[in-house]
Write a protein that binds this DNA or RNA. Structure first.
Lengths: 127, 127
DNA sequence: CTGAATCCTGTCCGATACTG
DNA sequence: CAGTATCGGACAGGATTCAG
């Protein structure tokens, strides 16, 4: 066993696989893209409209990375007008529940987080 | 109703609360810090040793942000040698399961992801 | 419509040095 | 031990332009 990645919850090696994979899918655009696509496949510009503030470049790069990792599928549709369909893969669908759990956590606990921020800022602003 | 954040799964406003909160906690160091602290509170340098590759600065900033958001607690301990204890808060503990779900997903599906990468690279390298 | 390519600017972050 | 302060390089990513 020449290669020990030390990835056991109490220690994280630099080449820990789950760590590397996490970085590939745990950015904010990925989360939003997956959430939108969960409601059904759609096209590039429709996706761009729904993700307020994303640039063409970032969207393009993020889609490409998700496609490469097998999370989403890209299909060219020969129609009028021509389009490209993005949709979740079966593998990608299995990743969705964990992300939605975080999404729901954020919605449920934002008040507690805001209270913590106020308390923190108060403590750290006194002379 | 002057303020509509459009944060309903098919559309993401720039000021969507869950989106803003996600960015605060979904970076790679935060995930690893929370995972380590889940095994019990510990000190700064011990944390630094366990998170291979993290710089003092990044660790310090990430800890501060997590503390501000109420995820972890920082306690100065008057002992010999003097130390600082970091540990999860009750609020932070509720955030852990969703993150561990992603962590477990990464461990379980890395083979499928690797296969997808190989297929993708193969398709995109042909003349 | 769906991107790719270029430029360019802000920001992250590691290295280093210093403080209590 | 537990950080803060400062600098500088690398890189992300927005605006714009061009192509298929």
């Amino acid at each position: 066993m020449p290669h020990d990645t030390h990835c056991n919850g109490s220690r994280f090696s630099v080449d820990c696989p789950s760590r590397l994979l996490f970085d590939q899918v745990a950015d904010k655009w990925s989360m939003m893209i997956m959430t939108v696509l969960n409601g059904g496949g759609t096209r590039f510009n429709d996706l761009k409209r729904r993700l307020e503030g994303v640039s063409q470049k970032s969207l393009s790069m993020t889609l490409k990375r998700l496609e490469r990792n097998g999370i989403i599928a890209r299909t060219v549709v020969a129609s009028t007008p021509p389009g490209v369909l993005y949709e979740m893969t079966p593998l990608g669908l299995t990743l969705l529940p964990p992300f939605q759990a975080i999404y729901l956590w954020a919605n449920s606990n934002m008040d507690a987080v805001e209270a913590a921020r106020v308390a923190y800022d108060k403590d750290h602003s006194e002379s």
